[in-house]
């Protein structure tokens, strides 16, 4: 079904193409909206395995590491400390092999935000002091974001949810992760089938209109309409799954201490985990010590 529709291509401006797209550059922009492309791209992102420094660590240690590094910049206004913490976070991002796409988006987002705020501030009479103040904020937000990137990009979602479970997070979170991890391809496939059905049964958009608004309108229309059968089908499937799980005592086992103990038995702290946490804590303390010795405050620039 999928291959047929994608390969033959219904003659519609938003028609999906397989990866070796025909050499018509005019089409390329719209191809990014094709459901098939999106599906492949998403599955690639969700199920790809990446190496990295933090992958070999115990997930609980990674979460603790993240909390230490992510929270530490918010307790000071000292720029020296912030620069050091930012550097630590940047090094860990490089060490955990964050992909260039995510990294690029992050840098553009962070800088863009700061530039916009500065333009608006300049409009209200800001000066170079405003830039320094924004720099402080950017350093803090950047450290937090990079810490989360380094920690969670390389962490398997199921491992992460087990770590959160061991920190007494609600058991439903862990269940949701396992469920979503397995259902995602089925759901995307189903959505794809429904959208294809709509497209097969309806006439293509004749004219694109101003800025292609007719095409966009059609996409929105089909998306809304697709949720009607999708919700009904998902409801049916959910009931089947949940009843099958509950017959086997799923919720009971999920919440029972013994069940949790068995589930989390594979997690164990090793020396390297302790080393990671201790090393990070030491670095943060050192950053604060250096900042105390050579303080650099925002108001020094005003």
């Amino acid at each position: 079904m999928t291959a047929l529709v994608a390969g033959e291509g219904v003659d519609e401006p938003t028609g999906p193409r397989l990866a070796p797209a025909p050499k018509r550059t005019r089409r390329r922009e719209r191809d990014t909206l094709s459901v098939e492309w999106v599906k492949l791209e998403l599955l690639r992102t969700a199920y790809a395995t990446r190496g990295g420094l933090l992958t070999i660590m115990d997930p609980r240690a990674v979460v603790i590491w993240y909390v230490i590094l992510g929270l530490s910049p918010w307790f000071t206004h000292n720029l020296t400390v912030l620069v050091i913490l930012f550097t630590i976070a940047a090094i860990s991002v490089i060490a955990s092999r964050v992909g260039p796409l995510i990294l690029g988006l992050f840098i553009i987002g962070l800088l863009g935000e700061a530039v916009y705020v500065f333009i608006a501030a300049w409009f209200f009479g800001g000066d170079s002091g405003t830039v320094i103040a924004l720099l402080e904020l950017t350093l803090k937000l950047g450290t937090l974001s990079m810490a989360s990137m380094a920690a969670f990009v390389s962490l398997d979602p199921e491992k992460l949810s087990d770590a959160l479970l061991s920190f007494r997070a609600p058991a439903l979170l862990s269940f949701g992760v396992s469920y979503g991890y397995r259902m995602l391809p089925i759901l995307i496939d189903e959505f794809h089938t429904i959208v294809d059905g709509h497209r097969l049964r309806s006439a293509p958009v004749q004219k694109a209109g101003f800025l292609g608004w007719r095409v966009l309108w059609r996409i929105a229309e089909v998306t809304f309409a697709a949720f009607y059968p999708l919700m009904l089908n998902t409801a049916k499937r959910t009931r089947t799954t949940v009843e099958a799980l509950e017959t086997r005592g799923f919720t009971y086992a999920l919440e029972h201490p013994d069940g949790q103990r068995i589930r989390l038995a594979y997690l164990r702290y090793r020396w390297r985990d302790a080393g990671l946490i201790a090393g990070t804590a030491l670095l943060v303390v050192a950053a604060y010590a250096v900042g105390y010795a050579a303080p650099l405050e925002v108001r020094d620039f005003q």
Binding site: F123, F124, L134
Partner: peptide, 16 residues
């Protein structure tokens, strides 16, 4: 929280 004396920085509170 993030910026020291945020309300004294010229133009920052209004723009945010």
């Amino acid at each position: 929280i993030g910026v020291a004396d945020a309300e004294f920085v010229e133009g920052l509170p209004e723009s945010i």
